[in-house]
């Protein structure tokens, strides 16, 4: 059976993916609850891989839980914690568990996380990992050895449209396409006009692009993102919009902004879908989708 996420993208449907962050610890009750809320609404769930280099449940295990719920997982794989043997081994394992989608990333540095003394691996990086997946799909491992049964992945990558400077980032995007990326999920974008410029470039390549959205909870959060997260730029007018909201309505305003952006991205056919990163507010994903007219 092929990836239902891939089929949705190829059908021309405006696709929605959301993120599920595995917890730190074995209590997955909240995660299960959030998955139930999103089931039947989103096309696929990205399961993050020790995001921000903070140690949590592995992506592979939670992807299996997503599958068991009858949902479609996207396995996020970073190169920070495993060498080429570990990565390939986990990819083969993911395939036999029925995981069809993989998102290849280099991964946040260990210094960003909660085990700063850890040895960063980076034996390979995102572009090379895409090639590895392509190789496994055609029955060969990284050393050229024949596999007894190949993998069946629909592989994707990430891109930061607002990177500064943008030129080297765009060349890397091209390298990822050449290395076999079939779809892209972007870093959070807030300036749709600017994103349209990126898409004018990205549309030259045979890949699907999902715009990344992070819900703004407050003006403070927007300022924090601007100051601390590379590649994210929240325009001042959006910050003012949230600041100007009635008391207690900041989050709702943030959700309205996300819904408005989704509507525009869909109506103007700017990209192929959206990737909603709710970061701890997964229960709000269906609300935003409803506001955006997707449900």
């Amino acid at each position: 059976m092929s990836s239902s996420f891939r089929e949705a993208l190829e059908s021309g449907k405006f696709v929605v993916t959301a993120e599920a962050g595995p917890p730190k610890g074995t209590d997955i009750s909240t995660l299960l609850h959030d998955l139930d809320l999103m089931k039947g609404k989103v096309d696929a769930i990205n399961v993050t891989d020790n995001q921000s280099a903070v140690m949590r449940i592995c992506s592979l295990a939670i992807c299996k839980i997503v599958l068991d719920k009858g949902m479609e997982p996207i396995l996020q794989m970073t190169c920070r914690d495993r060498n080429r043997i570990g990565l390939q081994s986990d990819l083969l394992g993911a395939d036999v568990l029925g995981i069809k989608n993989v998102l290849c990333m280099t991964g946040d540095h260990v210094l960003a996380g909660d085990h700063k003394g850890a040895k960063p691996v980076y034996d390979v990086e995102s572009v090379q990992l895409l090639k590895v997946v392509d190789g496994l799909n055609t029955g060969k491992d990284m050393s050229g050895n024949e596999l007894k049964g190949s993998t069946h992945f629909f592989q994707g990558a990430v891109v930061t449209p607002e990177a500064t400077p943008p030129e080297p980032q765009m060349l890397k995007f091209q390298k990822k396409v050449a290395a076999g990326a079939r779809f892209f999920q972007t870093q959070a974008i807030y300036d749709i006009d600017k994103f349209k410029e990126f898409m004018a470039f990205a549309r030259k390549f045979p890949v699907k692009v999902l715009a990344g959205l992070v819900i703004l909870k407050s003006a403070g959060m927007a300022n924090f993102l601007n100051a601390n997260v590379p590649g994210i730029r929240v325009p001042q007018e959006l910050i003012d919009e949230i600041r100007g909201a009635e008391k207690g309505k900041a989050l709702e305003t943030g959700m309205n902004i996300a819904a408005r952006h989704i509507r525009r991205l869909k109506e103007e056919k700017i990209c192929d879908g959206v990737h909603i990163m709710a970061i701890g507010m997964e229960d709000k994903v269906p609300v935003i989708m409803e506001k955006a007219g997707l449900l």
Partner: peptide, 15 residues
């Protein structure tokens, strides 16, 4: 710091 061989990661900020 990541020893990346094929271009910048998404973490570049103002170079």
């Amino acid at each position: 710091p990541k020893g990346i061989l094929n271009g910048p990661c998404g973490g570049t900020k103002d170079g």
